[in-house]
Design a protein around this nucleic acid. Structure first.
Length: 605
RNA sequence: GGUCCCGUAGCUCAGCUGGAUAGAGCACCUGCCUUCUAAGCAGGCGGCCGUUGGUUCGAAUCCAACCGGGAUCGCCA
């Protein structure tokens, strides 16, 4: 159980109290600390209902006795009140001030090194078409999770699998050779992945035309779909590729090269990167040996036709084929081999996280069971970071119907929206063109990333383009705005002498001991105080949305503070120093939280 | 049909390791820029937490069934 700074103080005292009063302490896990609801006085609430058997007393009596004990033994506990079975504890202002003092000197959202190494896989595109909105959810999720794990003290290895071989790329290659007239990204000005995607579509068109023609001649539809010459051609090309035909390989490398250039441009703009790429062309033969070894070990079994299977019926699943009768392997085989290879290449990995859509839930369930059955010690550290599809207001994205939202186009749109709003507000006139461009890029992407990350990954989500470029309310830009505002405040505090004295925070000791917190200050401090626990939660559950939502809560509270409490205009230097420190700590934590989400924090906006 | 995921305000989502009168944002309405950035703040409107049962002192939260939406059940990837 993760204990925040306050729980570390309260819990032992609480347990001691129970022991002293009732001769026995409850299970520490059973004690739930929760924030006191705003309609009651207090900061932390403990519900004593679960402990009535232990105390043998009524709820009020128990809560009062425990409350008395805490007040007596814990300095941070100022007073308490009891409502029904709820013990509402008021924490002394000095505690919060002390917390701020401590937090301002450290990074709230950076945990000590755990010594653990974790691999996170995300993106994993096919090389026959450009990246789209679905990839963006995947990429932002995976990237954010890797950053969160890093912040939580882990060493992280970011990888992607590039599905660079197979019938899909052969289709693009055939169409390009037939209809391309030597078109290249340079000659056409098209981004490489777009160009290759264009020929994938061309292939599909040609195939459909051929099928139609065959049907017109009286061929059955299924038959026609299988025998269309252009499809045969693609299949033949795949065989040639596998045989290592130099011309096919050369074309394949050339076209994939175009695609990688395109992908890299998209990744760069999206602000994500990888430590290592795994190419399917290099891994698709892996796993066969491992499966055969498993067969010898009795983990798998062979059927009469010679195919090799795993029996997962005991786990409530089915039998699954791992090697065909002719000895060739399958997707599952490949994934087995790739996982083993990765753990060999990165010894000491304690976890491996696959960011893959929930349509593959079953696949990963089976994969993990197999690896466990093979006796691989690390199999328990495997995790499928599953996420739901992204729907459009018009329904599902379908490539065949052309309703797919292209990743590059989408980024253009959100940035354009940020620009339109920014220019309308016209408070950035002092900035140069390059600076403004960079800023709009930052804001637009923040809107997009936050929109995709604030939702629980498990849930299918609706992508409303209009809402995603919203810059107000519960959005990434709102958080950035608060950060920029604080930075501006802090710059002024350092640069601008007010009433003849400079306001740099260090020059005056912030109030601590007898400081009376304003409700607005306390609200911010309490949320700041929860930040590490939320990071821990996000890191444990591999779920950026918790952190995303909390970051919003923090800046929302800060905005309320900012609106009604003077900082630079405060005349009492100790109070002013306290508020500056509060502001700078919020700014630091906010930029760290944004960093964990893969979002940049602007100095002004 | 089997298995898995999801169902909370008009819309998009939090809350789900059980706790007090269920929260945000958007939209709509009212106020607030001679004061540190109004991409902001304050307030209003808006709910049978899919339905029914069960467990419990207590259920949006746990269990079961049902309804609705989706995914998956290839010797495809």
């Amino acid at each position: 159980m993760f204990q925040d700074r306050l729980q570390q103080i309260l819990l032992p005292a609480l347990l001691a109290g129970f022991r002293e009063l009732y001769g026995a302490a409850p299970d520490a896990e059973k004690i739930g600390f929760q924030p006191t609801r705003p309609e009651f006085e207090g900061d932390v609430t403990i519900n004593v209902f679960p402990f009535l058997k232990l105390s043998g007393k009524g709820p009020e009596q128990t809560a009062n006795a425990i409350g008395d004990h805490l007040v007596k033994h814990v300095e941070a506990v100022e007073r308490f009140n009891v409502v029904k079975g709820f013990l509402n504890i008021v924490i002394a202002d000095a505690y919060w001030a002390g917390f701020l003092h401590e937090a301002s000197g450290t990074d709230l959202l950076r945990f000590p090194a755990t010594g653990r190494k974790v691999m996170v896989e995300y993106a994993s595109p096919n090389t026959n078409k450009p990246l789209h909105l679905g990839h963006l959810r995947n990429i932002f999720l995976g990237y954010s999770v890797s950053r969160i794990l890093q912040a939580a003290g882990n060493q992280v290895v970011k990888v992607q699998v590039i599905n660079d071989r197979g019938i899909h790329i052969c289709k693009s290659m055939v169409a390009w050779r037939k209809f391309g007239n030597g078109e290249t990204p340079e000659s056409s000005g098209l981004k490489g992945d777009k160009l290759v995607g264009k020929y994938y579509v061309e292939f599909d068109k040609a195939l459909k035309a051929e099928v139609k023609a065959l049907e017109a001649k009286g061929m059955a539809p299924e038959e026609a779909a299988k025998t269309a010459p252009i499809l045969r051609e693609a299949q033949e090309m795949l065989r040639q590729w596998e045989a290592g035909d130099p011309q096919v390989r050369a074309l394949w490398e050339r076209m994939n090269g175009w695609v990688y250039a395109g992908f890299n441009a998209t990744y760069a703009r999206a602000g994500v990167d990888f430590d290592k790429n795994y190419y399917e062309s290099e891994t698709y033969l892996l796993g066969k040996e491992d499966v055969l070894k498993g067969l010898e070990g009795g983990v798998f079994f062979r059927k009469a036709d010679g195919s090799v299977w795993v029996d997962n019926t005991a786990e409530g699943l089915d039998e699954k084929v791992l090697l065909r009768a002719d000895g060739t392997s399958l997707y599952m085989t490949q994934d087995i081999g790739t996982a083993i290879k990765r753990f060999e290449e990165y010894p000491g990995l304690s976890r491996m996280i696959y960011t893959v859509g929930n349509e593959q839930d079953y696949h990963f369930k089976v994969l993990f069971i197999i690896l466990k059955k093979m006796g691989l010690a690390w199999a328990d550290g495997l995790f499928h970071l599953s996420y739901g599809m992204v729907d459009l207001p018009s329904g599902k994205m379908k490539s065949r119907e052309g309703t797919v939202v292209d990743a590059d186009d989408l980024m253009d749109e959100v940035v354009a929206e940020a620009r339109a709003t920014g220019e309308q507000l016209s408070k950035l006139d002092a900035l140069g063109t390059a600076e403004r461009d960079a800023l709009f890029e930052m804001i637009g992407l923040a809107a997009l990333k936050y929109f995709l990350l604030k939702v629980d990954p498990a849930k299918r989500m609706l992508f409303d383009p209009k809402a995603s470029i919203d810059l107000q309310g519960h959005t990434g830009p709102f958080i950035q705005y608060t950060y920029a505002r604080i930075r501006s405040l802090l710059r002024k505090a350092e640069e601008v002498p007010v009433d003849g004295r400079r306001l740099a925070g260090q020059q005056v000791q912030p109030a601590t001991a007898n400081y009376q917190l304003l409700p607005e200050e306390k609200a911010v401090l309490k949320l700041l105080h929860q930040f590490p626990a939320v990071l821990n939660e996000s890191a444990t559950k591999l779920e950026p949305s918790a952190l995303a939502n909390h970051a919003y809560e923090v800046v929302k509270a800060y905005n309320a503070f900012y609106q009604s409490v003077p900082v630079l205009k405060e005349e009492d230097p100790a109070k002013q120093a306290f508020r500056l420190r509060l502001s700078s700590t919020v700014a630091a934590a906010t930029s760290r939280a944004l960093w964990c989400l893969g979002i940049e924090a602007p100095e002004r906006m």
